[in-house]
Simulated scan of single mutants.
Amino acid sequence: MKNTTLLFSALLLAFVFGLIRGQYAQVGHWLYANVTDLEASLYGFEQDQVDIGEMSLALYKTPGAEAKPTIVMLHGYSADKDVWARFAKHFVNDYQVIIPDMAGHGDSPYQPEWDYSMPAQAKRLAALLDKLDIQQAHVIGNSMGGFLTATFAIDYPQRVLSATMIDPAGVIPPQASDMMKMLEQGDNPFLVKNRTEFDDFYAMTMAQPPYLPDIVLEAIGQSYIERHDQLEKIFHDFHSSDYLEEKLGQLTAPALLWWGDKDRLLHVSSVPVWQTGVKHLQTEIWPGIGHMPMVEEAASAAEKYQAFLTSIE
């Protein structure tokens, strides 16, 4: 098991090897992978792999919390379970928290022949809950994970205690975002070919990103470059899924919608579409925040989410 000594060793390595450009990305990748795992463990999470038949999904979970209510946290396209740790730490005392890497992301496997559409990912999520013997859960998801949250709540309504969508995909926004304008010109900002393109993409993801040293950003950028074909396949399947405008009325679980008003990936003008479709939807628009409020304002977001859960329990 990793321990606190690793953190100091990692920082020392970052300083020493960061000076050697030829090894910069490799050390940054090691640093990011190990320190994020260490951080999650310090918050009370353990890592696990769960065989759902088709594949084995990696996840963080709170051990020994099986008797508590469950929250499932779903990351966005191209992201992984680590985006949730600083938000999720606020719930470890009162909930069983499950944070999976969905198929093709993080430490979960990818195969080009697999289906990465939202119905397929929702089926995998149901299989994961079955394996963990979880009958019902609060589900919260960001971006693609928000699309998946809504899809799961519609397809498996008996299993969802509440559905929270954070800057979700899944509807056509009335006003085009910066990303949508790029896609219309045949340029997908997620499919980067060099560090400059990654930096431009990363700037689109958050208005107030938490600090990451350049050595880590270099590693993340290199990972995007190496995963180009994989991300392209997942994006195709994900965006080929039927959008939800016609189905939103079937989302009957208590529901919460958050949106950062500075979101450059998915435009905030989508909010009225969700409000029209989902009855009794609670909504909050976050001023000055981008695509990931739970990362940009982790503590505040956790406080607000807890208030929502308390209001429906």
Rank of each mutant, 00 (worst) to 15 (best):
L13G: 07
L13N: 07
V16I: 15
V16P: 10
F17L: 13
L19A: 14
L19D: 10
V27A: 06
W30R: 15
A33W: 05
V35G: 09
A40I: 00
S41M: 13
Q47A: 06
D48H: 13
V50K: 05
A58W: 12
L59Q: 01
K68H: 01
M73V: 09
H75W: 06
S78F: 11
D82Q: 13
V83M: 10
V83A: 06
Y95I: 04
V97A: 00
D101E: 05
M102E: 01
P109Q: 09
Q111Y: 04
S117H: 13
M118V: 02
P119E: 07
L128I: 07
L128F: 05
L128Q: 06
L129V: 06
A137G: 08
G141C: 07
G146F: 02
A150Y: 11
T151W: 03
I154S: 06
D155A: 12
Y156V: 07
P157T: 03
R159N: 15
A169T: 14
A169S: 15
V171T: 13
P174T: 00
P189W: 06
P189A: 08
K193L: 07
N194P: 05
E197V: 01
D200T: 10
A207L: 12
P209L: 13
P213M: 02
D214Q: 14
I215L: 03
G221S: 08
I225V: 15
R227M: 06
L231D: 03
H236R: 14
D237F: 09
S241Y: 07
L244W: 12
L248D: 02
L248G: 01
L256F: 05
W258D: 11
G260L: 00
D261H: 00
D263C: 07
L265Q: 03
S269P: 04
S270N: 06
V271K: 04
P272N: 07
Q275E: 14
T276C: 08
Q282R: 07
W286G: 01
M292A: 15
M292R: 13
A302F: 09
A302R: 10
K304C: 01
